[in-house]
Design a protein around this nucleic acid. Structure first.
Lengths: 207, 207
DNA sequence: CTGTGTGAAGGCTTTCACAGCC
DNA sequence: GGCTGTGAAAGCCTTCACACAG
């Protein structure tokens, strides 16, 4: 459990997925699951699942499987309570506004607490529950509320400079939707979601 | 060029990224670029870029670099003209509607030609240019227009069954936004974008 | 001297095979 | 018999080191 730094990133990704599968099992009243069943729900091989779990301990019962509640709790602990972090959204344009309305985040324990845009008053498609502030209020807000995570959905041409501002203000993790590479200091983590690249990739695999 | 099947998936992803960087260089009037410069723009190491290119040939001039136009054309060819494929969107809810309005796709050569929803008439946040049809028209549309790619943005509980319908109707590639694993035949490719998992993953890396 | 192309080395993940426990 | 835990093997991808071309 203290070897946190040594769990590979890919395993961390899968832990989130296992976690979600476990929650569904729990909702269905199951209290035990085998690595085989759980791995199938998650779309991986059972050996992979067991190896992933082995990074932080032994929680299964041979001949039986894993206790759903126990395993779920352990994974939650490994992933960290940091998941209750507040998140801000920068760039409330087309995609950004949509993300504000998307409630898939809340379900998993995240909440977008504020959004920022160059023009907070431009007409938005959706009635939003989240306040939209002027772009130049970002640094103040981040420092005041100790925000560490940001979702970036601004146009390519200003993505890097906005990212720099975020980092300077104390942001440590960025979920980047702008289709461009962001250069950040080592202590900052960036995960990029590039929709066009995903599509292009798919098209390659069409015969 | 004919060893298409042997280019690793990760390389294919990066080719899309290189392609975009090359287009920007071309727009700026540059006609030559070194592997070092291009790799930095793409956020990878220069050796990686050269290895990626080596999968399908030799296009550089030693001591000078690559011709922007040439390299761009070659990558386009490798990725396949399949990128001009029409794409349909299934599930025009919150996230789905947003994707319809997002024009990042068109820029890269994709066009969402139609959308489908259980209730095509429910109020949409945005004025959409794309027609929304009833869910039960999907198979007909796919067969009629020879559509091969679909974006799936439906609720978890029906994702698998909708995916099955798509596959049966002839879809070969799915960009999946539903946070669940999709089981599909081998000839079908699925790329998943799981926003909650991305956030959770980021939160792990916050100290 | 600059910058590509590439065999070899290294590192990281996944899978196998099977020992060990219920 | 069923299922976990794990060292060893295999596979995959990245990086190094350097030969070679302009």
């Amino acid at each position: 459990m203290n070897a946190k730094a040594e769990i590979p990133r890919k395993t961390i990704y899968r832990l989130s997925i296992y976690q979600r599968c476990l929650q569904r099992l729990a909702d269905n009243g199951q209290d035990t699951v085998s690595s085989d069943a759980l791995s199938k729900a998650a779309g991986v091989k059972s050996t992979q699942l067991r190896k992933d779990i082995a990074y932080f301990g032994q929680f299964g019962t041979r001949g039986l499987g894993y206790n759903v509640q126990t395993l779920s709790s352990v994974i939650t602990e490994v992933l960290g309570t940091a998941r209750l972090q507040p998140v801000i959204l920068v760039g409330a344009g087309n995609l950004g506004s949509a993300l504000l309305g998307y409630n898939g985040f809340n379900k998993e324990g995240f909440e977008i607490t504020a959004a920022f845009d160059l023009d907070p008053d431009r007409p938005r498609p959706v009635a939003l529950k989240v306040p939209i502030y002027r772009h130049d209020k970002i640094a103040e807000f981040i420092k005041l509320h100790g925000v560490k995570m940001a979702i970036l959905a601004v146009p390519v041409h200003c993505a890097q400079s906005v990212a720099n501002d975020l980092v300077d203000a104390g942001i440590q993790a960025i979920l980047n939707f702008s289709p461009t590479f962001l250069e950040v200091p080592e202590h900052v983590t960036v995960n990029s979601v590039d929709l066009a690249v995903e599509l292009e990739n798919l098209s390659y695999f069409i015969r």
